[in-house]
Design a protein around this nucleic acid. Structure first.
Length: 647
DNA sequence: ATTCGGACGGCC
DNA sequence: GCCGTCCGAATT
């Protein structure tokens, strides 16, 4: 029996109440003393009922004046909450105005006893420091590889990947450098399909079975088993979806986030953390190299570059010129009348001829936006989204009103002139792509048509000619690359309401166009005067993200500022705002009636402040929640830091 | 005198 | 959140 472990355990109790966001002390019965070590899961009595918790530390004294209860039981002696992960969870909780317990739930999956009993399978290998290989084609690529290999510095890079090549094979060269230096690697990707792609690529590049997949959709037993493999150091390369950002990788020496603009990185449950932000915090706290890689660049990554926190790694011009797809736009004018077949498909003439020619040599990817309807308002003349004159928020016509009203600040826009063309007409933004998809078959008689969407996602197709119709994000890989890519209804993607429409459109187009063969034709059905279209045509996502961030700075919008949304009953939100000691400089928009889907009587206020003061704002809101919760104030207010869509 | 309920404080 | 306790009001 180690006498250094005191007979008191400081326990993180699994209660999500803001005013109980602190550890509680329990007596450790002699019989549990050996097992109740820091990081293990325990059960304790709290407020009269049994709840889960984690031992944070062992103490010999308590500051609590009352009587201590004993631990009820130690669930398992497995140390599932490691110190470094705990530290990360604390930082995430603080960043998102959450309690520690609410974050730890994501970091430690539910226990599965049988998985715990299964024997360990260690994944071992010996790796040599790789040659620079593909990284000679990137400015800063070789330097990044060297810094990862040397194992003592902490590079942070935002990589604009070369299209039409194999991005995961290239990233795995970086992984190999980390492995060779004795470190372990964490790769986070948007979905399970990407996890499968990366683990398959890792089998080839690093050895079969080296990579361990860590995703929620494995089911409880296999998920917990994979978690234990990571925890026990049996995994040198961990590949997972968003929650893997918390994975307790043993000797973590490299973290990679692929395509951070994908909204799957945003947790749908409170506190709505984003995997990129979790990884960035982790890199910062624990000095672990971080690579943010993709084709497009988000404004959030642009902030990291501009602040000097991360360094840009971009294709050398000759390399880019030799592989980039040739992008043509088919602008505002649809040349339908010229061609009956194209008319039937409602696709522009040049898209049709491009596809027709390419079908002779291989598969053609046809990307269509998700079918559905968007409810924003657009200019009736030039179709650009309408924005509020005072705060740049999106406009809508509420059910009870006649005139358009700002969704953010509530200002009424009775006389509105479009900021782009000066037009005064208003139209609803409507997206409807299903019909286009149906009619494609008629435009290309005899062609093999493969669909990949929602329920039926096809992961890859062979190199034989076929029309591959895919919704954005569901594009299959094509063996040898696509002979051509059509980006249909591109305008519809751009006209979606909300801040991120342009950025999101460019990201989706780049991801589809990157699947083409080197130099293959790509046709985008949108006007080339539109910045996102220009960025695609020149394959210059950096120009676009800089421009986008500059605009957000100008308008005072995220990620140039930190924002938090408060949603709830009118009285509750009002109380919140009156209790909270908001840091000076906080800008308050609203409260105004909350967007649909919230409760009908709910209101929303948007708070913004400089990024530097973001933590202070989050803390102030957490404290205000604690006061409301302790006072048992009526109603509830949801605090959401970095709201995804504020429109 | 006895029972019920709702408000409130504490939760180790 | 939930439990327990304490108080006042309603019930016998």
């Amino acid at each position: 029996m180690t006498s250094t472990a005191g007979d008191i355990a400081r326990v993180l109790v699994d209660v999500g109440l803001p005013h109980l966001d602190r550890p509680f002390d329990y007596l450790v019965p002699e019989s549990m003393s050996a097992k109740a070590m820091p990081g293990v899961r325990v059960r304790v009595r709290f407020a009269g009922r049994l709840v889960d918790g984690f031992v944070l530390s062992r103490e010999s004294e308590t500051t609590h004046k009352g009587r201590l209860s004993p631990l009820s039981s130690v669930v398992s002696s497995e140390v599932v909450l490691r110190d470094d992960v705990l530290e990360l969870c604390r930082a995430v909780a603080e960043r998102y105005s959450s309690t520690l317990a609410d974050v730890v739930r994501f970091a430690v999956p539910p226990r599965h006893a049988r998985a715990e009993a299964a024997p360990d399978v260690a994944r071992e290998g010996v790796w040599e420091t790789p040659g620079a290989g593909p990284w000679t084609d990137y400015v800063g690529g070789e330097a990044l590889l060297e810094r990862i290999a040397d194992g003592s510095s902490c590079p942070r890079a935002a990589i604009g990947m070369l299209p039409t090549r194999d991005p995961f094979a290239e990233i795995l060269v970086l992984a190999q450098a980390a492995l060779a230096s004795g470190g372990d690697v964490l790769i986070v990707v948007p979905d399970a399909r990407d996890v499968a792609r990366v683990t398959a690529a890792a089998d080839l590049a690093l050895g079969k079975g080296i990579a361990v997949a860590l995703t929620a959709d494995l089911g409880p037993q296999r998920r917990y088993r994979a978690f234990l493999d990571v925890l026990r150091g049996n995994a040198r390369v961990v590949v997972g979806t968003r929650a893997a950002a918390f994975a307790p990788v043993t000797h973590l020496r490299l973290m990679v986030c692929w395509d951070d603009g994908d909204d799957l990185y945003s947790s749908p449950q409170f506190p709505y953390w984003h995997a990129r932000e979790v990884l960035a915090l982790r890199s910062h706290l624990q000095s672990v190299p971080l690579v943010l890689a993709g084709y497009a660049r988000t404004p959030e990554v642009q902030v990291l570059i501009d602040s000097g926190w991360a360094k840009a790694v971009l294709p050398r011009r000759p390399a880019l010129r030799s592989v980039a797809p040739r992008v043509a736009s088919s602008g505002g004018d649809f040349e339908r009348e010229r061609d009956p077949a194209a008319t039937a498909a409602r696709i522009p003439h040049n898209a049709w001829t491009t596809a027709q020619a390419a079908l002779a040599s291989g598969p053609v990817l046809v990307q269509v936006p998700f079918a559905g309807y968007a409810r924003g308002l657009a200019c009736g003349t030039c179709r650009s989204p309408m924005r509020c004159a005072s705060c740049a928020g999106p406009l809508q016509i509420p059910r009870t009103e006649q005139a358009p009203m700002c969704v953010w600040c509530g200002a009424r826009a009775s006389t509105h002139a479009c900021s782009t063309c000066g037009g005064t007409a208003v139209r609803a933004q409507v997206i409807g792509s299903a019909r286009t998809v149906e009619e494609l078959g008629r435009a290309f008689p005899g062609a093999r048509v493969i669909r990949s969407d929602g329920e039926h996602v096809v992961s890859s197709v062979d190199s034989a000619p076929a029309l591959v119709v895919a919704t954005t994000g569901a594009e299959p890989q094509a063996e040898g690359g696509y002979a051509a890519v059509l980006l249909l209804d591109a305008r519809a993607l751009l006209e979606r309401p909300g801040l991120r429409a342009g950025e999101e459109a460019l990201r989706r187009w780049c991801n589809a166009a990157a699947l083409a063969r080197p130099g293959a034709p790509v046709v985008v059905t949108a006007d080339q005067a539109i910045p996102a279209v220009q960025a695609l045509m020149r394959w210059d996502p950096v120009w676009f993200s800089s421009r986008e961030l500059a605009e957000r700075e100008h308008l005072g919008l995220p990620p140039a500022v930190r924002m938090a949304a408060l949603t709830g009953e009118q009285a509750a939100v009002a109380e919140m705002l009156s209790i909270a000691s908001l840091p000076t400089g906080t800008r308050v928009l609203g409260p105004v009636p909350a967007p649909r889907r919230e409760a009908p009587d709910a209101v929303r206020a948007l708070l913004s402040i400089t990024r530097k003061e973001g933590m202070a704002l989050a803390r102030a809101l957490h404290d205000a929640q604690a006061i409301r919760s302790a006072h048992r104030s009526p109603g509830s207010v949801e605090v959401r830091v970095d709201p995804m869509e504020i429109g």
